[in-house]
Simulated scan of single mutants.
Amino acid sequence: MLDRIKASLPSLAPAEQRVGKLVLADPRSFASLPVSELADRAHVSKPTVVRFCRSMGYDGLSDFKLKLVGTVSEGVPFIHRSVDVDDKVSDVLVKVIDNTVAAFLKYRNDASTHAIEKAVDALMETYRRRGRIEFFGAGNSGIVAQDAQHKFFRLGINAIAYSDGHMQVMSASLLGPGDSVVIISNSGRTRDLMDAADIARKHGATVITVTASGSPLATAGHIHLAADHPEGYDRYSPMTSRLMHLMIIDIMATCLALRIGGTALQPMLREMKNNLRSKRYA
């Protein structure tokens, strides 16, 4: 949570930056002080303190403080251990698994349920209006986009994934009000994805970004789902980041399935399973 605040500071308004710096300077005190005291210490108004919390993806000051206390008091010790050239197979196994587990637990502590709920609300609205839900990603994130399409179309949703930059721009040009696009990126700096986000937003579609806080893509959409981790996007192949993106997609797909309801889904999924039986050996 503190890492995300630090990364997001440059994109905040000056007054909100002062609130963010106050959090980083003494998280424990921030979590215990009333809003009036926090406003005085940051030299801002009380609404600005609340606005900062919402800018970070939380429902308000109370929700922000609750997560802050959890991060400071019960935070998961996170040490990202890079794989070295002289590591044995046993070392690589332990490092890769430990890095992934620690990243998942850290995300559980830091994730903004408010932002996820907003994303699920938007996707559910698109489903109700029989709009299109599209997933864009490049490279490894393109594979995550394909996985997302597979999960969502099994729910009876009109979903499609594109990993080619030209196709993304063309498809974004055809989106409109009632449609949604989920853009996935590890770095949040891919030009094609930024172009597609701008076009989709201009045409009235809801743009949801799954990327690192403080990146250009994080502020290019309507809803940002932070996916922060210490893994460098310029070294080796993304491992922790890809799995984190898959997990976020799983969370949204599960929430959406619960919203749609078993009465609508179960008969369809049952028929799909029966139709697939002929594809398997007995």
Rank of each mutant, 00 (worst) to 15 (best):
V94N: 05
N99M: 03
L93D: 07
S90A: 13
A102D: 10
K106H: 10
A111S: 14
V96Q: 02
I97Y: 04
L105I: 05
T100F: 05
T100I: 00
D84F: 10
S112Q: 08
V85A: 11
T113V: 08
V96R: 02
T113C: 02
D84S: 14
T113I: 09
V92D: 00
V94I: 09
S90E: 13
V96D: 07
N99Q: 07
A103D: 14
A111E: 11
K88Y: 01
A103F: 11
Y107M: 14
K95M: 04
T100K: 04
A103G: 08
D86G: 03
I97W: 02
D91K: 04
V96F: 00
R81H: 13
V101L: 08
F104G: 04
S82D: 15
V101K: 03
D84G: 08
V83W: 12
V83Y: 13
D110A: 15
D98H: 08
I97S: 11
N99I: 05
V85T: 09
T113S: 08
S112N: 09
D91V: 03
N109P: 05
K88S: 15
V85F: 11
S112F: 05
D87Y: 00
K88P: 00
V89A: 12
V101A: 07
D86H: 09
D86P: 04
N109Q: 15
K88L: 10
F104C: 04
